[in-house]
Design a protein around this nucleic acid. Structure first.
Length: 231
DNA sequence: AACCAGGACGTGA
DNA sequence: TCACGTCATGGT
């Protein structure tokens, strides 16, 4: 099984190459081969984010992209950037109406405006310390995937990120049950991979990239990974 | 015109 | 624990 999970990773990596997640606005690298590419990707640079505000920006992005496309989340981030509030203290100074107008394009503006405040207050209280997963899950608006995304992409901690695409692909290949819950699927990957941050970062990004192409609408016709299908 | 998008929360079995 | 409705905008 370990062999299978690694082989799928290698196949996807050869197909799409390094993805350069998580995109950062003020990073000017681009990856022109990406579908729907926006600026900010930094393939093969696993040292990003480093600055406090860049870490903060990744965290804002994890909230904003919940159940929406990255394009819309990125537009919301652009608006926040224009307001010069991709800095925790400044974001808290901004009134609710302005925040909602800025993030409106990412959907769920009422709850996300609350979530952004909650995670921002939490971030400030950390004073640079890396949060635990349990701490993150206590923050309103941070569920399993967002917590793992923050840990893996903002803080470079070896926490595998699972999303709807992950379950869709691997259950379609009959490797896992389609009703497997988040934590079991997460542990499935973590127990079948070396605990390596760049690998975790790339694997999740590659899954998203592959799923966007072949798993957005039924019937799923994945001829690329078909060779790995069990039975 | 329905369906989907890099989910989370509250509720009731 | 698990299933379900709700939250909202924008693209296909």
């Amino acid at each position: 099984m370990q062999d299978l999970i690694i082989k799928i990773y290698e196949k996807l990596y050869k197909l799409y190459g390094p993805q350069g997640w998580w995109p950062i606005k003020n990073h000017h690298g681009t990856n022109p081969t990406k579908t729907g590419a926006t600026r900010g990707y930094h393939p093969e640079n696993y040292d990003i984010p480093k600055q406090r505000n860049d870490i903060f920006e990744v965290i804002l992005g994890t909230i904003l992209t919940q159940n929406t496309t990255w394009l819309q989340a990125n537009n919301a981030l652009t608006h926040l950037n224009q307001l010069n509030v991709i800095e925790p203290e400044k974001l808290l100074d901004l009134d609710d109406t302005t925040i909602k107008a800025a993030i409106r394009c990412a959907g769920f503006l009422n709850q996300k405006s609350i979530y952004l405040r909650e995670i921002t207050e939490f971030f400030i209280k950390l004073k640079g310390r890396i949060p635990t997963r349990k701490e993150l899950l206590k923050v309103k608006g941070v569920g399993n995937e967002t917590a793992d995304s923050i840990l893996l992409y903002a803080y470079k901690q070896p926490e595998f990120v699972v999303d709807a695409y992950t379950r869709r692909i691997f259950s379609h290949l009959k490797i896992v049950d389609e009703r497997i819950n988040y934590m079991k699927l997460k542990h499935f990957f973590e127990s079948n991979l070396p605990s390596d941050v760049p690998v975790y970062q790339e694997y999740h990004a590659l899954i998203v990239e592959h799923a966007k192409r072949y798993y957005s609408r039924k019937p799923y016709e994945d001829t690329i990974l078909n060779e790995f299908s069990i039975k």
